[in-house]
Protein backbone atom coordinates (compact mmCIF):
# COMPACT_ATOMS: atom_id res chain seq x y z
CA UNK A 1 0.00 0.00 0.00
CA UNK A 2 2.97 2.29 0.54
CA UNK A 3 3.54 1.93 -3.19
CA UNK A 4 0.09 3.49 -3.81
CA UNK A 5 1.00 6.55 -1.79
CA UNK A 6 4.44 6.97 -3.33
CA UNK A 7 2.99 6.67 -6.82
CA UNK A 8 -0.03 8.88 -6.14
CA UNK A 9 -2.51 6.15 -6.86
CA UNK A 10 -5.98 7.27 -5.89
CA UNK A 11 -8.42 4.83 -4.32
CA UNK A 12 -11.69 5.33 -6.12
CA UNK A 13 -14.87 3.93 -4.59
CA UNK A 14 -17.24 2.10 -6.93
CA UNK A 15 -20.62 0.75 -5.85
CA UNK A 16 -21.68 -2.51 -7.49
CA UNK A 17 -25.29 -2.77 -8.77
CA UNK A 18 -27.95 -3.12 -6.08
CA UNK A 19 -29.89 -6.37 -5.78
CA UNK A 20 -33.24 -4.65 -6.29
CA UNK A 21 -32.27 -2.72 -9.39
CA UNK A 22 -34.78 -2.77 -12.20
CA UNK A 23 -32.10 -1.92 -14.76
CA UNK A 24 -29.45 -4.49 -13.99
CA UNK A 25 -27.82 -4.56 -17.41
CA UNK A 26 -27.54 -0.79 -17.53
CA UNK A 27 -26.02 -0.77 -14.03
CA UNK A 28 -23.55 -3.51 -14.96
CA UNK A 29 -22.49 -1.52 -17.99
CA UNK A 30 -21.97 1.55 -15.85
CA UNK A 31 -19.95 -0.47 -13.34
CA UNK A 32 -17.78 -1.79 -16.18
CA UNK A 33 -17.19 1.71 -17.53
CA UNK A 34 -16.19 3.05 -14.13
CA UNK A 35 -14.00 0.05 -13.31
CA UNK A 36 -12.14 0.23 -16.62
CA UNK A 37 -11.71 3.98 -16.35
CA UNK A 38 -10.16 3.65 -12.90
CA UNK A 39 -7.92 0.85 -14.12
CA UNK A 40 -6.79 2.79 -17.19
CA UNK A 41 -5.97 5.79 -15.01
CA UNK A 42 -3.66 3.58 -12.96
CA UNK A 43 -5.79 4.07 -9.84
CA UNK A 44 -7.20 1.47 -7.47
CA UNK A 45 -10.91 0.54 -7.74
CA UNK A 46 -12.42 0.06 -4.29
CA UNK A 47 -15.63 -1.94 -4.40
CA UNK A 48 -18.09 -1.70 -1.52
CA UNK A 49 -19.86 -4.53 0.29
CA UNK A 50 -23.60 -3.89 0.78
CA UNK A 51 -22.86 -0.27 1.68
CA UNK A 52 -25.30 1.19 4.24
CA UNK A 53 -26.85 -2.28 4.55
CA UNK A 54 -28.37 -2.01 1.07
CA UNK A 55 -28.18 -5.34 -0.72
CA UNK A 56 -25.88 -5.25 -3.72
CA UNK A 57 -24.05 -7.81 -5.81
CA UNK A 58 -20.58 -8.68 -4.57
CA UNK A 59 -17.59 -7.03 -6.24
CA UNK A 60 -15.64 -10.24 -6.90
CA UNK A 61 -18.62 -11.97 -8.51
CA UNK A 62 -19.33 -8.94 -10.70
CA UNK A 63 -15.69 -8.83 -11.81
CA UNK A 64 -15.78 -12.56 -12.51
CA UNK A 65 -19.12 -12.54 -14.32
CA UNK A 66 -18.23 -9.57 -16.49
CA UNK A 67 -14.75 -11.01 -17.18
CA UNK A 68 -13.10 -7.75 -16.09
CA UNK A 69 -9.33 -7.80 -15.96
CA UNK A 70 -7.78 -7.60 -12.52
CA UNK A 71 -4.48 -5.90 -11.93
CA UNK A 72 -3.74 -7.03 -8.34
CA UNK A 73 -2.54 -3.64 -7.17
CA UNK A 74 -5.57 -1.89 -8.66
CA UNK A 75 -8.49 -3.54 -6.91
CA UNK A 76 -9.57 -3.33 -3.30
CA UNK A 77 -12.59 -5.24 -2.04
CA UNK A 78 -14.52 -4.15 1.03
CA UNK A 79 -15.58 -7.08 3.17
CA UNK A 80 -17.85 -6.84 6.18
CA UNK A 81 -19.21 -9.21 8.80
CA UNK A 82 -22.71 -9.54 7.29
CA UNK A 83 -22.33 -12.82 5.45
CA UNK A 84 -22.81 -16.49 6.04
CA UNK A 85 -19.62 -18.43 6.49
CA UNK A 86 -20.17 -20.19 3.16
CA UNK A 87 -20.74 -16.88 1.40
CA UNK A 88 -17.63 -15.39 3.02
CA UNK A 89 -15.51 -18.22 1.70
CA UNK A 90 -17.08 -17.94 -1.76
CA UNK A 91 -16.10 -14.27 -1.86
CA UNK A 92 -12.58 -14.93 -0.61
CA UNK A 93 -12.05 -17.87 -2.95
CA UNK A 94 -13.23 -15.76 -5.88
CA UNK A 95 -10.79 -13.03 -4.83
CA UNK A 96 -7.94 -15.53 -4.75
CA UNK A 97 -8.94 -16.94 -8.15
CA UNK A 98 -9.15 -13.44 -9.64
CA UNK A 99 -5.82 -12.35 -8.15
CA UNK A 100 -7.42 -9.72 -5.92
CA UNK A 101 -5.02 -8.88 -3.14
CA UNK A 102 -6.33 -5.89 -1.18
CA UNK A 103 -9.18 -6.23 1.29
CA UNK A 104 -10.67 -3.53 3.47
CA UNK A 105 -12.13 -5.35 6.46
CA UNK A 106 -14.99 -3.57 8.21
CA UNK A 107 -17.70 -4.51 10.65
CA UNK A 108 -20.27 -3.04 8.25
CA UNK A 109 -23.95 -2.20 8.24
CA UNK A 110 -26.58 -4.89 8.58
CA UNK A 111 -30.18 -5.13 7.46
CA UNK A 112 -33.12 -7.52 7.85
CA UNK A 113 -32.05 -9.49 4.80
CA UNK A 114 -28.38 -9.79 5.66
CA UNK A 115 -27.04 -12.68 7.70
CA UNK A 116 -24.28 -12.05 10.24
CA UNK A 117 -21.19 -14.12 10.87
CA UNK A 118 -21.29 -15.75 14.28
CA UNK A 119 -18.33 -16.02 16.64
CA UNK A 120 -18.36 -19.79 16.05
CA UNK A 121 -18.11 -19.23 12.28
CA UNK A 122 -14.77 -17.48 12.70
CA UNK A 123 -13.50 -19.50 15.64
CA UNK A 124 -13.84 -16.65 18.13
CA UNK A 125 -14.69 -17.87 21.60
CA UNK A 126 -14.15 -14.68 23.55
CA UNK A 127 -16.68 -12.33 21.93
CA UNK A 128 -20.46 -11.91 21.73
CA UNK A 129 -20.48 -10.74 18.12
CA UNK A 130 -18.08 -10.65 15.22
CA UNK A 131 -16.39 -7.35 14.38
CA UNK A 132 -13.71 -6.49 11.86
CA UNK A 133 -11.11 -7.67 14.39
CA UNK A 134 -12.35 -11.26 14.46
CA UNK A 135 -12.93 -11.30 10.71
CA UNK A 136 -9.44 -10.00 10.05
CA UNK A 137 -7.88 -12.59 12.35
CA UNK A 138 -9.91 -15.36 10.72
CA UNK A 139 -8.97 -14.43 7.16
CA UNK A 140 -5.31 -14.04 8.11
CA UNK A 141 -5.40 -17.56 9.53
CA UNK A 142 -7.42 -19.20 6.76
CA UNK A 143 -5.71 -17.49 3.82
CA UNK A 144 -2.13 -16.93 4.97
CA UNK A 145 -0.18 -14.66 2.66
CA UNK A 146 -3.03 -14.28 0.19
CA UNK A 147 -4.26 -10.80 1.11
CA UNK A 148 -3.07 -7.40 2.26
CA UNK A 149 -5.78 -6.31 4.66
CA UNK A 150 -6.69 -2.86 5.85
CA UNK A 151 -9.12 -1.54 8.43
CA UNK A 152 -11.25 1.53 8.98
CA UNK A 153 -10.56 4.34 11.42
CA UNK A 154 -13.31 6.63 12.65
CA UNK A 155 -12.07 9.96 14.04
CA UNK A 156 -15.63 10.81 15.11
CA UNK A 157 -15.82 8.02 17.68
CA UNK A 158 -14.61 8.63 21.24
CA UNK A 159 -10.84 8.76 20.84
CA UNK A 160 -9.87 6.35 23.60
CA UNK A 161 -12.29 3.71 22.36
CA UNK A 162 -11.25 4.10 18.71
CA UNK A 163 -7.54 3.80 19.48
CA UNK A 164 -8.13 0.76 21.68
CA UNK A 165 -9.97 -0.82 18.73
CA UNK A 166 -7.15 0.14 16.41
CA UNK A 167 -4.68 -1.66 18.68
CA UNK A 168 -6.79 -4.82 18.37
CA UNK A 169 -7.06 -4.42 14.61
CA UNK A 170 -3.30 -4.07 14.27
CA UNK A 171 -2.72 -7.09 16.50
CA UNK A 172 -5.12 -9.06 14.30
CA UNK A 173 -3.07 -8.33 11.19
CA UNK A 174 -4.14 -5.00 9.70
CA UNK A 175 -1.56 -3.60 7.31
CA UNK A 176 -3.12 -0.30 6.29
CA UNK A 177 -5.83 2.08 7.48
CA UNK A 178 -8.60 3.96 5.68
CA UNK A 179 -10.17 6.79 7.64
CA UNK A 180 -13.76 7.99 7.60
CA UNK A 181 -14.15 11.13 5.45
CA UNK A 182 -12.54 14.27 6.80
CA UNK A 183 -12.93 17.71 5.29
CA UNK A 184 -10.13 19.53 7.09
CA UNK A 185 -7.06 18.79 9.16
CA UNK A 186 -8.17 16.52 11.93
CA UNK A 187 -6.40 16.22 15.28
CA UNK A 188 -7.46 12.60 15.81
CA UNK A 189 -6.15 11.59 12.41
CA UNK A 190 -2.92 13.41 13.29
CA UNK A 191 -2.75 11.32 16.44
CA UNK A 192 -3.28 8.17 14.39
CA UNK A 193 -0.32 9.13 12.19
CA UNK A 194 1.83 9.76 15.27
CA UNK A 195 0.88 6.45 16.86
CA UNK A 196 1.37 4.38 13.71
CA UNK A 197 4.14 6.06 11.70
CA UNK A 198 4.93 2.89 9.76
CA UNK A 199 1.37 2.03 8.76
CA UNK A 200 0.12 3.42 5.44
CA UNK A 201 -2.89 5.63 6.07
CA UNK A 202 -5.44 6.46 3.39
CA UNK A 203 -7.59 9.52 4.06
CA UNK A 204 -11.15 9.32 2.79
CA UNK A 205 -12.13 12.44 0.87
CA UNK A 206 -15.80 13.27 0.56
CA UNK A 207 -16.41 14.09 -3.09
CA UNK A 208 -20.12 14.86 -2.99
CA UNK A 209 -21.19 18.50 -2.83
CA UNK A 210 -23.94 17.36 -0.48
CA UNK A 211 -21.95 17.66 2.70
CA UNK A 212 -25.03 17.11 4.86
CA UNK A 213 -25.01 13.45 3.80
CA UNK A 214 -22.02 13.13 6.10
CA UNK A 215 -24.17 13.93 9.14
CA UNK A 216 -24.60 10.31 10.18
CA UNK A 217 -20.88 9.61 9.96
CA UNK A 218 -19.76 12.61 11.95
CA UNK A 219 -22.52 12.32 14.53
CA UNK A 220 -23.92 15.85 14.27
CA UNK A 221 -26.33 17.58 11.91
CA UNK A 222 -24.74 19.34 8.94
CA UNK A 223 -27.24 21.85 7.46
CA UNK A 224 -28.47 20.98 3.97
CA UNK A 225 -27.46 24.35 2.56
CA UNK A 226 -23.81 24.06 3.65
CA UNK A 227 -21.59 25.06 0.73
CA UNK A 228 -18.80 22.62 0.01
CA UNK A 229 -16.17 22.43 -2.70
CA UNK A 230 -14.91 18.82 -2.87
CA UNK A 231 -12.04 19.47 -5.29
CA UNK A 232 -10.59 22.33 -3.23
CA UNK A 233 -11.01 20.22 -0.08
CA UNK A 234 -9.19 17.37 -1.80
CA UNK A 235 -6.28 19.65 -2.64
CA UNK A 236 -6.18 20.80 0.98
CA UNK A 237 -6.13 17.20 2.19
CA UNK A 238 -3.08 16.58 0.02
CA UNK A 239 -1.39 19.66 1.49
CA UNK A 240 -2.27 18.66 5.06
CA UNK A 241 -1.43 14.98 4.66
CA UNK A 242 1.33 14.70 2.03
CA UNK A 243 2.42 11.28 3.27
CA UNK A 244 -1.05 9.72 3.13
CA UNK A 245 -3.01 8.13 0.35
CA UNK A 246 -6.49 9.32 -0.55
CA UNK A 247 -9.73 7.39 -0.94
CA UNK A 248 -12.37 9.16 -3.04
CA UNK A 249 -15.94 8.39 -2.02
CA UNK A 250 -18.97 9.43 -4.09
CA UNK A 251 -16.75 10.72 -6.87
CA UNK A 252 -18.70 12.12 -9.82
CA UNK A 253 -17.38 10.26 -12.84
CA UNK A 254 -18.95 12.72 -15.25
CA UNK A 255 -18.28 15.95 -13.43
CA UNK A 256 -15.16 15.41 -11.31
CA UNK A 257 -13.10 12.51 -12.60
CA UNK A 258 -11.25 14.56 -15.21
CA UNK A 259 -10.27 17.08 -12.54
CA UNK A 260 -8.61 14.75 -10.05
CA UNK A 261 -5.47 13.99 -12.06
CA UNK A 262 -4.25 17.54 -11.36
CA UNK A 263 -5.03 17.57 -7.65
CA UNK A 264 -2.29 15.35 -6.26
CA UNK A 265 0.74 17.55 -6.78
CA UNK A 266 3.80 17.40 -4.59
CA UNK A 267 4.86 20.80 -3.36
Amino acid sequence: MRHHIENRIYHVEILPPKQDTEKLHEDLELFTTKYNRVKESGYCACITDNAMGLLAFQGPEVIEELCLKVEPSQVMIHLNTFHTKANLHEILDTCVAQGIKYLLIITGDGSDRLPKLTPADVGATDVQSVTSVELLRYIAKQYPGKFTMGVAFNPYEPQEHEFAKMERKMAAGAEFVVTQPIIEKNAIVDELLRKYPDVPVIIEAWMSKKLYLLSDAVGYEIPEDTEFDPIETLKQIHRDYPDCGVYLSLLGFKTQYHLISDTWVRE
Partner: peptide, 11 residues
Amino acid sequence: TPRIPTLRGRL
Protein backbone atom coordinates in the same frame (compact mmCIF):
# COMPACT_ATOMS: atom_id res chain seq x y z
CA THR B 1 -31.08 -17.95 6.66
CA PRO B 2 -32.18 -17.25 3.10
CA ARG B 3 -29.30 -16.94 0.71
CA ILE B 4 -28.76 -13.71 -1.19
CA PRO B 5 -29.06 -13.99 -4.98
CA THR B 6 -25.79 -14.14 -6.84
CA LEU B 7 -25.28 -12.16 -10.01
CA ARG B 8 -24.96 -15.41 -11.94
CA GLY B 9 -28.24 -16.64 -10.48
CA ARG B 10 -29.97 -13.37 -11.27
CA LEU B 11 -28.76 -13.38 -14.88
